[in-house]
Design a protein around this nucleic acid. Structure first.
Lengths: 238, 238
DNA sequence: TTTCTTGTGCTACCTAAGTGATTTTGGTTC
DNA sequence: GAACCAAAATCACTTAGGTAGCACAAGAAA
């Protein structure tokens, strides 16, 4: 069994969810995967070397990774993206080959598939049809970023927190996922605020009965109440 | 003289500054320009129809156009991009063909070159080398948006205003350009604030002697003082 | 068990920035 | 010229959210 075949058996499910490379058949995946190798990064690993991502491109196969920014002077943190299974990084470096000044930290023990940038670029040249995928994916990221900007300007912390919660509720189970086991501080960094303030708002929601909270745990108690809360919040913008 | 030749004589200088299509020679431009026609839009024209940009793509040849967002409830405005000569729009629509929910307004009488999206897409298919240009250009926009997000989270209004001014000072003349003749309200929208607050900060800068202000006019009096002001502001972040 | 660390809950306080109202100014039009 | 209007300048006031500090609880480690 070749390495590519091994990776394919292990990860074909995950890879088929990977928007950027959607539409590849088994044969094409095997050809492509020959360029990859697997890496395991343990929880709390920080990648602060911006150079690293000029040379390798990664696909997450399990665990969470946050991409974040730190203010040089105040040392405040802001989480730009919370990456999970089937997400890729770093797209910026891939597209223009310029250093991307952000940091990465593993929130779990994670596994990634790694490919050298050169190999990915030459694969892309051999499969130019994928340029289109990359363009529409870029557009998606831009829309997300633009949406973030609007949120930051138009919405207050309470609304942003509510939206964070609502956006991470699984439609089927009505349960919070991806961010349910994060400490208040990490939630704060996701919306550009501080632990104390986030806690203040969470207490408020708990009091009203829409959520329950424990150490490293936020649970949805009443999704409809939560949605209504968000609705009211938005309506009351002046 | 064909229409394309006419446009080329008129705008070759401007078009050569257009990053997205850089590297085209005269012959290629003539071929490309055959798909374009010129339009004039008068000052204060608003384009609130999101559909419009699904079907045409534009290059600005003179004047300024703001791309902005309005909050549905509070009706607050935020200017996302201030587009000028050699800028293009709407990139989002071009890349993924999905409606882009932003508004446009002409800050001057402007002139644009227009091409139908279909024609542009088929030109792009005939010239696939330009996919790469589009990708690195997308990366640039993403970096700008990400930088905006960081600014909004880490910097206060005073810093954001100072940065807006400094970023729009011409290196040679040391004079403010592009935004120098905007009313306080427009400046406020550029940094996500309100007229009154921006005015408060401008008064402060005026008092200290780094700028002078008049109706629809901000002028740099002492660029070094302004830079130092920005420096101090950043240092004092806690 | 004890010790240590990390996260939470809560208090009191401070300040930047938003709000709303009024006056003044400068430029345009009639 | 007078009349008008948009922008600017100022004021007093409110408030969300950041800050600092501390006690306490839950786990992990020793």
């Amino acid at each position: 069994m070749t390495s590519a075949e091994h990776l394919y058996t292990k990860y074909s499910r995950t890879l088929s969810n990977c928007e950027l490379f959607s539409g590849l058949n088994k044969e094409e995946w095997l050809d492509f995967l020959a360029n990859f190798h697997e890496e395991k990064w343990s929880k709390n690993t920080c990648i602060i070397n911006h150079q690293k991502f000029l040379f390798h491109f990664y696909i997450i196969t399990s665990g969470r990774l946050k991409m974040y920014n730190v203010d040089d002077i105040s040392h405040k943190e802001h989480t730009l993206f919370l990456l999970k299974k089937a997400d890729v990084f770093d797209l910026f470096c891939l597209l223009d080959g310029i250093k991307h000044k952000v940091y990465y930290e593993c929130l779990d023990n994670i596994k990634v598939l790694a490919i050298s940038m050169d190999q990915l670029r030459s694969w892309l040249n051999r499969n130019p049809i994928f340029y289109k995928h990359f363009l529409s994916y870029s557009a998606k990221i831009m829309r997300t970023l633009e949406e973030n900007v609007s949120q930051l300007i138009f919405a207050n912390i309470s609304t942003r927190l509510l939206k964070l919660l609502v956006d991470n509720v699984d439609h089927k189970s009505n349960q919070l996922e991806l961010i349910n086991d994060l400490p208040n501080k990490e939630l704060a960094h996701l919306i550009g605020s501080t632990r104390a303030v986030v806690n203040r708002h969470l207490q408020e929601l708990k009091k009203k009965g829409s959520i329950s909270i424990a150490r490293n745990q936020v649970e949805i108690k009443d999704i409809n109440l939560l949605l209504q809360e968000l609705e009211n919040n938005v309506k009351n913008r002046k």
